[in-house]
Every structure is written in C-alpha cells, then in structure tokens.
C-alpha cells in the first residue's frame, strides 16, 4: 500500500514538474505566446473561454462515446465470431489486418462524402478506429482458452453456448479490458480527427479555427481538454477492469464476493 502511495505521489510530482519546467523555460528564454504559450496562459484562456468551449467539449465527448460504444459492440461481435472458430480466425484475419492498416485519416473524406459533415462522420471515425484492437483481443482471448478448462464443462455435457458463456468470455475479460483502454483513447483521436476535417462543432473544430486565428493559447487549451478527457475515461475503464478482472492480477485487496 505504501508503495502504491509513493508511486502516486511521484506520478503527480512528475506532472507538476513537467508544467513547472515548461513555465520556467518559457519565461527564461522569452518564448513568444504565438509559438508556445505558458501553462499559466493556457489555464487562464481555459477559464476565460470556458462558457464558449463547454458545448464543444460535450460534442466531442458525445461523438467519442457513441463511436466507442458502437465500436465495442461491433468489435465484440466480430471478435466472438472469429474467436470461437479456428477456421474463421484464419480466414478473416488477413481482411482485418488489411482494414486496420488503412490510415483512418483517409476514411474521413469518404464518410463526409456519404454522410455530410458534422456529427455522423465523427462518430463513424471514432468507431472504425477502435474496432480493430477490440476484435483482435477478444478473438485472441477466446482462441487461447485452455482446453483443460473447456473440458471441465464439456465433461458435464455443456453446450457450446454454455462453454462460451462460462469459460470463454470470462477468460477473455483481461484481454478485453486491455483493448478497451487502448480503444477509448483511439476513439478520441478518431473523433477529433474528423472534427478537424469536417465539422463546425467539437474540440477539433475549435482548435482548427483557433490556429487559423493565431489564437495559439486556445489551441493548447484544446489539447489540454483532450488530454484531460482521455485520462478521465482511461481511469474509468481501469477501475472497471480492476473490479472485473482482479483474479488475473491477483491483487491482495481484490474484493471477495
């Protein structure tokens, strides 16, 4: 416990130190606001412009979470489909790798072409960018389930569905949560990417128009917001992960239910 506390303190100190160093270096070297604003400037801008920024934050959060939810749904479905069958795993994998290799920035114009600018392409971009890690992790988790564990249920006469439900899926949970933490941050990237290219709402759009107005501190304020949102959602899923998959990490404080 003491170890954990000291790690947390050190981690907080590192973050504070980073911003302090940034502030000090900007002051000492006399860096212009137009090149790199100081953290204190950025925070001031953030507070100052918050009423204007707030709807954009909600918009980005909305497109990210909807895209993420769709991505998780589709990713789990595809992952289960190809994970339960060795043949499907082999057959579908090359296609999946092909899709995942496409730079997602390239699909935004296509979505805009199909659905116009605004919310829809942002949601879709957030979705496609986060599907692949989820599919791969679910499929891998299922495909690597120990046959001995499945035998326990088979010997009892369990159906394939019961085996999936009682062994395959619980066994896959650590893989699933590992992919969720990657997927949620990727969803942010996807949503902001699409907003930057084709939207008049959202943090991506705010940063775009701010940079064309040379409002550099607002651009950085946008980055800060994105980083903060990313960290917040990451923490949410980490906490959920610890509750659901504590058995895999063997924490001593893992709640005995």
């Amino acid at each position: 416990m003491d170890d954990e506390l000291s790690i947390n303190i050190a981690s907080a100190a590192l973050i504070c130190g980073f911003f302090a160093l940034w502030e000090v270096l900007c002051l000492l070297l006399g860096v212009s606001d137009l090149i790199l604003p100081r953290p204190s400037d950025i925070v001031a801008t953030l507070i100052d412009r918050f009423p204007v920024l707030w709807p954009h934050i909600l918009q980005t959060l909305y497109t990210t979470l909807v895209g993420f939810a769709l991505g998780v749904g589709i990713g789990v479905a595809i992952g289960v489909l190809i994970g339960v069958s060795r043949i499907a795993y082999g057959v579908a994998y090359p296609l999946l790798v092909g899709f995942s290799s496409i730079p997602k920035v390239a699909v935004v114009p296509i979505f805009v072409l199909w659905f116009g600018s605004g919310t829809t392409p942002a949601i879709l971009t957030a979705m496609v960018i986060c599907v692949f890690p989820i599919v791969v992790n679910i499929a891998t988790g299922l495909a690597t389930t120990e046959p001995e564990l499945e035998d326990v249920l088979k010997s009892l006469g369990a159906s394939r569905r019961q085996i999936l439900w009682n062994v395959g899926l619980p066994r896959t949970m650590p893989y699933f949560f590992a992919s969720l933490k990657v997927a949620i941050t990727l969803s942010f990237v996807g949503a902001v990417l699409s907003e930057t290219v084709a939207s008049n709402r959202g943090i991506g759009n705010v940063m775009m128009s701010a940079s064309s107005n040379f409002d550099v501190s607002l651009v950085f304020a946008g980055l800060m917001i994105l980083a903060a949102l990313g960290v917040a959602l990451y923490v949410v899923f980490s906490m959920l992960e610890r509750r659901v998959t504590g058995w895999a990490t063997r924490k001593n404080d893992f709640a005995v239910t």
Binding site: E148, L149, D151, V152, N166, V167, P170, R171, M173, T245, W247, A248, V256, T257
Partner: peptide, 8 residues
C-alpha cells in the same frame, strides 16, 4: 485441479 481462476 483445473479450477476456473475467476471464480471462488
């Protein structure tokens, strides 16, 4: 023993 590790 093949106990399922996620169950008590």
């Amino acid at each position: 023993p093949t106990m399922l590790p996620w169950l008590s």
